[in-house]
């Protein structure tokens, strides 16, 4: 789906791309398996239990590996401070799942209001009417909120 791309290019100053923000993706990864590598090289393989906007996370059924990759630990549950993380590897299917979920939510919102708008041309313009423009807009988000309630 080229949706994210097109919207990102059309949009003007200081707006994030339409596609799933990194932390939204993390949120959507709850209960999914993932691999977390810390800055020190240790890795944690487990299922995501919970996360917050600092990228702090809790994992369950964890296999911990040291930086050299030669020692392993099995941990029932663990908490990882977000600031120590280098990267997370999540299932390939997650992006599609999140996009589908977003589309469903959008459609549901539309039909609930009774104003059925079709076509891509209207995307975004109609949003402010919802009156919740800045659901997760940071300080950089301009007034022309194109916020897509999630």
């Amino acid at each position: 789906m080229s949706e994210g791309h097109g919207a990102a290019r059309e949009s003007s100053l200081g707006e994030w791309p339409r596609s799933t923000l990194p932390l939204s993706l993390l949120n959507a990864a709850q209960n999914k398996p993932m691999l977390v590598e810390l800055k020190n090289g240790e890795t944690f393989n487990g299922h995501l239990v919970n996360c917050d906007n600092f990228m702090n996370i809790t994992l369950r059924e964890v296999y911990q590996t040291n930086a050299e990759g030669d020692r392993f630990w099995k941990v029932k549950e663990c908490y990882i401070r977000g600031s120590t993380i280098k990267y997370l590897r999540v299932p390939d299917t997650l992006l599609d799942a999140v996009k589908e979920e977003q589309n469903r939510a959008r459609e549901a919102g539309r039909s609930a209001r009774g104003a059925h708008v079709s076509g891509a041309g209207n995307r975004g313009r109609g949003m402010p009417q919802r009156g919740r423009g800045a659901v997760r807009g940071g300080p950089m988000r301009g007034g022309r909120g194109r916020g897509r309630g999630m």
Binding site: G4, W16, P17, S19, T20, L21, P22, L23, L25, M55, D92, L95, G138, M140
Partner: peptide, 14 residues
């Protein structure tokens, strides 16, 4: 690159 935010957190596919 599929997405990013104000911290330059990146979502990288494939």
């Amino acid at each position: 690159l599929r997405s990013y935010d104000q911290f330059a957190n990146l979502v990288l596919e494939d």
